[in-house]
Amino acid sequence: MFTGIVEYTAKVHQLSRDQNNLCLTFINPFLNKEIQINQSISHNGICLSIMNINQKTYSVLASEETLLCTNLNFLKLKDKVNLERSMMLHERLNGHIVQGHVDTIATIVNIENRNGSWLFFFRSKKKLDHVVVEKGSITINGISLTIVTYNQYIFNVSIIPYTYRKTNLHMMKIGDIVNVEFDIIGKYMNKHIQECKKKM
Rank of each mutant, 00 (worst) to 15 (best):
N168H: 11
L48F: 02
C47Y: 05
F2D: 08
V6N: 04
V102C: 05
I140F: 02
F182N: 06
L128W: 05
L24D: 04
R165Y: 11
F26R: 11
K197N: 12
C69W: 01
V133E: 01
G4V: 00
E64I: 01
N44F: 05
N28Y: 00
F122D: 03
R165T: 10
H170G: 11
L22Q: 15
L68T: 12
I37G: 11
I143R: 08
L89K: 07
T25G: 11
G95D: 02
I108S: 05
K33S: 08
T139N: 06
S16C: 08
K33H: 13
L169V: 14
I138Y: 01
N52P: 04
S86R: 09
L145C: 07
I105S: 10
S16D: 11
G4K: 01
V12L: 13
Y153N: 11
R114E: 14
H13D: 15
I193A: 14
S59R: 08
P161A: 01
V178F: 03
R123K: 15
G175S: 13
I41E: 02
K127H: 00
L169G: 12
S16P: 09
K187R: 15
N179H: 02
H96G: 02
I111Q: 07
C23K: 14
C69L: 03
N179M: 10
R85K: 13
K11P: 03
I111R: 12
N73R: 10
I159Q: 03
I37V: 15
I159Y: 09
N168Y: 06
H101F: 10
G95P: 09
F122P: 02
L15M: 08
K135E: 06
T9S: 07
S49C: 07
T70G: 03
N20A: 12
S16L: 07
G175H: 11
T3K: 05
F120K: 01
Y164I: 06
N54A: 00
H130M: 07
E64C: 09
N21Q: 13
